[in-house]
Design a binder for these strands. Structure first.
Lengths: 189, 189
DNA sequence: CAGCTTGGTTCAGTGAATGAACCAATCCTC
DNA sequence: GAGGATTGGTTCATTCACTGAACCAAGCTG
């Protein structure tokens, strides 16, 4: 299906449907990276967890070139990571599918790694278990009740490392200055 | 340090030391992706977990252009994800640092996601807890003894989804046809 | 010393990201 | 229902990174 499945991995990159392919990789990691490994893609997915749903909000919050955003939203939708739900007029929204939601451990893991190694002032955002307010630890478990916390039960809140709010923050950044439950829309809509 | 820390995130990508920067991102994920988010980078890190240590082995196994491999190894070394340990002559080796090893949950998570959604015949490689042989579950815990398994205690073994070995497999692929403990060198060295 | 292996570097060709400008369909206001 | 602002894109010239093949120099081997 993806060229020769026999290694050595990654020979002759021919015509393939998938963007940024690691041709014929018999490896699950390479396959995953074909879907979410492109530049900007995982940031789009993270924003989707945070509740961003509209084209303009992704664009303003990430500072991503609009042409690239168009491409990434199309790829993610084609790969069933996001679903495009049509709204009023052209104002359709993008939301995570179950497959997209299952990327949560990866997104959380990478954020934690970044905080651990580059967050001099502590994590920029912290994750809390909504029912009891306990912190979500590195393994994804609530440090209070011990439960394995699913993303729908997580609240993002500003952490000690988050820079102070500025009056010219974009709407998404401004909204995320307050605790917010993952996967719920950030703006009324 | 990385441009303005105030959002909107990612304005004016000027001259920056970091490769593939998401300029001024006040976000831990963006910071992490600056280090391990480039094309090929995470595959190099995965191979390092599997015990690949030499330039030629990375190149042969991944099929990555040598110029790109040179760049990635230099970046990862500069970022203290890999360490270059000089060997005999120019035969130096690259091995994961503690910071690199702490990427294990991310690498395992992405491989698991790829297997879950694209591995029609089951996982291509499975991870076992070395002391008792129990499978390592999605959360990184041993399904036998329940312990939180560190990568040094993990054995990679071929899974049901792995294509059959071929006589012209590269040496790394051939070596990985047998169970192998993570972080230990794949070839005698 | 000749030749092979290893670990790169160089370079031309290609493809993708960037960012600014533009556009068409809505929605709001009057 | 006319005019303007919003929204969700598309287009395009420029810049940048990846690709892949060729080349090279330092060590080892016979």
């Amino acid at each position: 299906m993806f060229g020769s499945l026999n290694e050595p991995i990654g020979r002759y990159a021919g015509a393939m449907a998938l963007p940024r392919d690691y041709t014929g990789q018999a490896c699950s990691l390479a396959r995953a990276l074909e879907v979410v490994g492109e530049r900007w893609t995982l940031l789009v997915v993270r924003d989707a967890f945070f509740g961003v749903r509209r084209f303009g909000d992704f664009a303003d919050h990430l500072g991503i070139p609009r042409a690239v955003l168009t491409d990434r939203l199309a790829s993610l939708t084609a790969q069933d990571v996001l679903a495009r739900v049509p709204g009023a007029g052209r104002r359709s929204e993008y939301e995570l599918t179950a497959k997209g939601v299952s990327l949560w451990p990866v997104v959380r893991g990478l954020m934690a790694w970044g905080d651990d190694h580059y967050g001099e002032k502590g994590p920029r955002r912290v994750f809390l278990h909504a029912p009891d307010g306990g912190a979500v630890g590195p393994g994804g478990h609530c440090e209070g009740c011990g439960a394995d916390v699913s993303p729908a039960d997580v609240v993002v809140a500003p952490g000690p490392g988050l820079p102070p709010a500025s009056p010219d923050d974009d709407p998404v950044t401004a909204a995320l200055a307050a605790p917010h439950r993952l996967l719920t829309p950030l703006r009324a809509g």
